[in-house]
């Protein structure tokens, strides 16, 4: 039976982006955050993580962070394919523009979920295994999927609009940095934060992803996480629409 076009594209995207160099960035960076920040701040933030320590608190945050990393993979795929001629080559092959886009999106989700699973496994070695309910697992999967699509769309938008390699890399680094540290990945949203930073936290979709995954991880889901996921879904639809529009209008190559 012939393999559908979309699966072939997902296979190709996965194979090309899982070389050792890419994996070091994709999994190594979050793993280092987990280990060094986790143990480093353990003594300072002993009360965090429902009494299980900062490492436990950080674990769902780092799982959520995988959505951002997956998004950067998605954006970089389009960027590299435009820059190095593969987008034009694929589009004179048996694929449509929409199939190519869906291929990137599904690959991003795959990377997001896969990365989160690796971080969960690593954390279970460091802090032991906890119990996550079936609902919790569902919320984790759904939230990281949604987050991966949001950040994948955001980076696709950037890679469709930007024409310079330096500009693309700078924007990518800036996005990772700001989104990561202006969220609840590493620390809770405390009342002592300056208003501007608090607003930034509230606007940052990664905060919603981190809060929902954390609620699921500690089996402490509340209606707040439900509302946050709803907002995230709406934001995802908007950014996905903008990304598709920019991508459909963009040149297929940098020539």
């Amino acid at each position: 039976m012939p393999i559908p076009n979309l699966l072939r594209l997902i296979y190709r995207n996965t194979r090309v982006n899982t070389d050792p160099g890419s994996l070091v960035i994709l999994l190594g960076l979050p793993a280092l955050y987990l280990v060094f920040f986790g143990f480093g701040f353990q003594s300072l933030a002993g009360a965090a993580g429902g009494g299980k320590g900062y490492l436990a608190y950080l674990t769902p945050g780092i799982m959520a962070f995988q959505a951002v990393m997956a998004g950067t993979v998605g954006g970089s795929m389009l960027w590299a394919d435009r820059r190095y001629g593969m987008l034009a080559q694929l589009l004179v092959g048996p694929f449509t523009r929409l199939q190519y886009l869906l291929g990137i999106m599904f690959t991003s989700v795959l990377f997001g979920l896969g990365g989160a699973a690796v971080m969960l496994a690593l954390a279970s070695l460091l802090v032991g295994t906890g119990t996550v309910t079936a609902l919790g697992v569902g919320v984790m999967l759904g939230t990281i999927t949604l987050g991966s699509i949001f950040f994948g769309s955001l980076m696709l938008l950037v890679s469709a609009l930007v024409k310079s390699n330096n500009a693309y890399n700078s924007i990518q680094i800036l996005v990772i940095f700001v989104v990561n540290f202006a969220s609840t990945v590493f620390y809770p949203l405390s009342s002592g934060l300056p208003l501007a930073i608090k607003v930034l936290f509230d606007l940052n979709p990664l905060t919603y992803v981190a809060d929902a995954v954390r609620g699921a991880y500690f089996s402490q889901l509340t209606p707040t996480e439900g509302w946050q996921l709803l907002v995230l879904a709406v934001e995802t639809v908007v950014v996905l629409y903008l990304a598709i529009r920019a991508y459909m209008r963009s040149d297929v190559s940098m020539e």
């Binding site: 194979r15 190095y84 001629g85 593969m86 034009a88 080559q89 020539e255």
Partner: peptide, 16 residues
């Protein structure tokens, strides 16, 4: 496109 082949003028490669 399922029945044609194209070698473009510019290079096109996967990172492998």
């Amino acid at each position: 496109r399922q029945r044609i082949g194209v070698v473009q003028q510019g290079e096109s490669f996967d990172f492998t």
